[in-house]
Design a protein around this nucleic acid. Structure first.
Length: 475
RNA sequence: CGGGGCGUAGCGCAGCCUGGCAGCGCAUCUGGUUUGGGACCAGAGGGUCGGGGGUUCGAAUCCCUCCGCCCCGACCA
């Protein structure tokens, strides 16, 4: 049995151990292309459901666009192609024929969708277009890591078109808020929202916004982005409509996405040295029942365990009854803890006699006997508690690793010591951003919305600071 | 893409230096006894030694080359 490397010894190795031991994903023959195993995929499906429900509730609909895109289309938006070209995979042959025009495998779908929107949109009455797609995309990455950065990954990409600049901006921020609410409610993961710096914004966007989470090793992870694309793509792809005032105008577009990377964020936000800890709302099994075999247990204990399972299912809880005879209870305890199941219920002859169930929490490891009667409600209440406890624990961790600094010396010493988020005044110039990165490895994660011109000077160069920004070492 | 480390059974590793029967632990399978924190006994199965090429009577071992994984850096919404 391979042990999981302790976080304190090597966080990165811990992460890779958890991914493999918990059977979330596995490597394949191609660099950066991982298989997502059933347990991992079940978690992804729950993430999808939570997001999809929210997209639909805000008026979005799903559609599907093709994997292959004519290379020439990518070239139409100047900044976009410059940003993505180094990461694009090409198809130059089909069967035994050289293609007249090479295809690219989508790294994102702005260009193909833009081409279609140009056909679909004629009038202001066709707007807004609010489409999302669930898809795989490919970006040729040099350094890959399961979930965090893979060559092929799963994500959703929303692509909307609007009549006015204000509407596009509203959509961009609405989705950012949706992502934040989702991360905090479903993933129990506190995030910082704000605007990306000029150097970190999406290739082709007017403005990019992000949510950023803090991982257990003190490094930040960009967990989702929402872009206001202005009229950049509308002009490149001639997406035009006739307005209320009879004039022909370009639409205003947005795009936004989150990927399987979110899953990596969940692992690194909540996990501990025993393995994964899943927030109940995205746990494929919220409760695992371990029957305690004694004597003729299949006829004494097992029926009671099934009854317990039925009560939990009736209460709307996702349950796994682990009735495998080949493993001992102790082995099952360790196994399901490693896989992050929020609650474990043990039921044996002693419990049955007393009308009780032994309940153990994954997050606190507290173990207590609770009455069998009403166990469904008890489980629901405990799961809610765990969901909140995980959020508050993560929030406290972030607060303990967040500070405002006023001098560069202070900035550097924070980054050398216990890293985390640093809020510092910044003049907004790429020059300072780059030299801060060179000195400390920290980059601008984003610029908070409340941030306004402050009287203090740039933490690096001392000039007037236009904003305060969140800095951190990042993935 | 640069520097470093690594690749031998599902996992972790020894063997390589100095060429000569492919091994160990865990896991797996069968049978039995067990089972409230990773059980025990007995037996069994499992290998293109990352791929290709070369040297040699003979290559896991030596040489060339390609691929993959990990770490650091560059790059990367």
């Amino acid at each position: 049995m391979t042990e999981i490397t302790p976080q304190s010894e090597d966080f990165s190795r811990w992460y890779l151990d958890v991914v493999r031991r918990a059977e979330l994903a596995d490597y394949t023959e191609v660099k950066g292309c991982m298989a997502i195993r059933p347990y991992g995929y079940a978690i992804w499906e729950l993430i999808q459901q939570g997001l999809d429900r929210r997209f639909k509730a805000t008026g979005h609909v799903n559609a599907y666009f093709p994997l292959f895109i004519p290379a020439s289309l990518l070239m139409k938006e100047k900044e976009h192609v410059a940003g993505f070209a180094p990461q694009v995979a090409w198809v130059t042959r089909g069967g035994d024929e050289e293609l007249a025009e090479p295809l690219i495998v989508r790294p994102t779908s702005e260009v193909i969708i833009g081409t279609l929107y140009a056909k679909w949109i004629q009038s202001w009455r066709d707007l807004p277009v609010l489409i999302n797609q669930w898809a795989n995309v490919v970006r040729w990455e040099k350094v890959t890591r399961p979930f965090l950065r893979t060559t092929e990954f799963l994500w959703q990409e929303g692509h909307t078109a609007h009549e006015t600049e204000a509407e596009a901006q509203e959509e961009t921020l609405k989705i950012l808020a949706l992502y934040k609410e989702f991360a905090e409610t479903e993933l129990a993961m506190p995030v910082i929202d704000g605007q990306k710096s000029e150097s970190e914004k999406f290739a082709g966007a007017s403005r990019t916004y992000s949510i950023e989470a803090l991982m257990g090793d003190g490094r930040a992870l960009q967990a989702g982005t929402s872009h206001n694309l202005g009229q950049n793509f509308a002009k490149a792809f001639e997406i035009q409509f006739q307005g209320r005032d009879k004039t022909v105008q370009h639409v205003w577009t947005t795009s936004w996405g989150v990927s399987t990377r979110l899953f990596g964020a969940v692992i690194m936000t909540h996990g501990d040295d025993s393995g994964l800890i899943l927030p109940p709302r995205v746990a494929p099994y919220q409760v695992v029942i371990v029957p305690i075999p004694r004597g003729n247990w299949q006829e004494t204990v097992l029926p009671k365990a099934r009854e317990l399972q039925a009560q939990l299912v009736a209460a709307g809880v996702r349950v796994m009854l682990d009735d495998r005879d080949a493993y001992t209870p102790g082995w099952k305890f360790a196994e399901w803890e490693m896989r992050g199941v929020p609650l474990r219920m043990e039921i044996g002859p002693k419990d049955i006699e007393k009308g009780q169930v032994m309940v153990a929490r994954r997050d606190t490891r507290e173990k207590s006997s609770l009455p069998f009667d009403g166990i469904g409600d008890t489980a629901v209440r405990l799961l809610t508690e765990i969901q909140q406890a995980l959020y508050h624990r993560a929030l406290k961790f972030r607060e303990d690793h967040t500070q405002r600094v006023t001098s560069y010396e202070e900035f550097k010493s924070v980054m050398e010591g216990r890293p985390g988020f640093v809020l510092a005044a910044w003049c907004g110039r790429e020059e300072c951003e780059a030299s801060i990165k060179a000195d400390t490895q920290a980059t601008v994660r984003n610029i908070p919305f409340g941030s306004q011109r402050v009287t203090r000077s740039c933490v690096k160069c001392g000039r007037d600071a236009s904003v305060e920004a969140w800095f951190a070492k990042s993935y």
